[in-house]
């Protein structure tokens, strides 16, 4: 276990190092942050002053060194747009993003896995075939389009659900969240569904594929021979064996969801990290972009770690060390 932790942390450092290099050179080489700070017709002195203020006059490796030092201390510099700490901006937006991600994840878990189990256990049935066709549709749908259709149908045509912004937030367990108010939930619904849809399809397909292979195993027949009821055979014996690849994908999908929040949040004007990123990209706001990338990289390494831990809980054959 200790050895495992050490290798994991080593990986984290390596990943963050590669990512930071890329981020730094990408931001230094491409794009000119001066445009944002300085007036169009600024004099050379003004430009010079701005460059010194940003440290752009130093050679690249010095800039990189400074970048690493400040990154390690969690300081990504001030956002050019908002003039506050980039990391703080992201941290502020983080809960809003997690809200739709969590709801989307729950939606896909509770709907997609049972359907996948069913479709995998009885591949020949009508319902399974319908479910499969729907899932192909699901992975073929551009998520922004789903969002637009939902906005049009529920927001504009029937006017039953709000389509923009986060709505009222209430306090739950000391955290300001949409989960606490009805209005918050209403606002949450459409973005979450949009986010969940393609994710559901992916998880469903994976569960089904796994179930189809598991159901052919001897121990399934043996469980039946023991007189175990059908439902228990499917969800007790088969699903637990199928779950291992599903958990991996669940972990990976969580990452994908976070990536796709950029789109969902843009469409629904949801004030989360994703929208912040897109705004920052459009405005060339370097500190926010770098902070976002590092933040997300950190989160993913952490997620992978959690997924590994879950493995050991599900599959006794896996030993982390």
């Amino acid at each position: 276990m200790f050895k495992y932790l050490v290798t994991r942390i080593g990986q984290l450092v390596a990943v963050l190092f590669i990512v930071s290099m890329l981020v730094f050179f990408m931001t230094s080489v491409v794009g000119d942050p001066l445009q944002l700070l300085v007036r169009q017709n600024a004099s050379n002195e003004e430009r010079q002053a701005a460059m010194e203020y940003l440290g752009l006059d130093k050679p690249l490796y010095v800039q990189y060194g400074k970048f690493i030092v400040s990154t390690l201390s969690g300081d990504f510099g001030k956002s050019y747009m908002y003039h506050t700490s980039a990391l703080r901006l992201i941290a502020e937006r983080f809960p809003a993003t997690m809200e739709i991600v969590i709801v989307a994840m729950l939606l896909s878990g509770f709907i997609a896995i049972p359907l996948g189990v069913y479709a995998g256990a009885y591949p020949k049935r009508m319902l399974s075939k319908t479910v499969m066709t729907l899932s192909v549709t699901g992975i073929s749908l551009p998520s922004f389009w789903v969002g637009m259709v939902l906005i049009f149908v529920f927001g504009l045509h029937f006017s039953v659900l709000p389509v923009s912004g986060r709505g009222q937030v209430g306090s739950l367990l000391g955290i300001q969240t949409s989960f606490a108010t009805l209005d918050g939930w209403k606002h949450l619904l459409l973005p979450s569904i949009t986010l969940a849809l393609s994710n559901m399809a992916t998880i469903l397909r994976l569960t089904r594929a796994g179930m189809r292979e598991t159901m052919k195993q001897d121990f399934i027949k043996f469980a039946r021979a023991k007189g175990v009821r059908n439902r228990k055979v499917l969800f007790g014996h088969a699903l637990k064996n199928t779950l291992i690849p599903v958990v991996t994908v669940f972990g990976l999908q969580l990452g994908t969801l976070i990536a796709f929040t950029t789109i969902t949040e843009t469409i629904f004007a949801w004030p989360g990290m994703g929208k912040l990123l897109i705004d920052a990209i459009n405005a060339g706001d370097r500190p926010i972009i770098s902070a976002y990338i590092i933040f997300v990289a950190f989160m993913f390494v952490f997620l992978n770690f959690i997924v590994d831990l879950l493995y050991t809980l599900i599959d006794p054959r896996i030993d982390l060390s």
């Binding site: 469980a223 021979a225 023991k226 007189g227 175990v228 014996h237 637990k240 064996n241």
Partner: peptide, 25 residues
């Protein structure tokens, strides 16, 4: 049949390596 399977008639399978569910003790 589930009342009979296991209780009155039980079965032993060919391959012990695959007949036990690997994720349960």
């Amino acid at each position: 049949m589930n009342e009979i399977r296991g209780k009155e008639i039980s079965m032993i399978f060919q391959d012990p390596m695959t007949s036990l569910n690997p994720v349960y003790t």
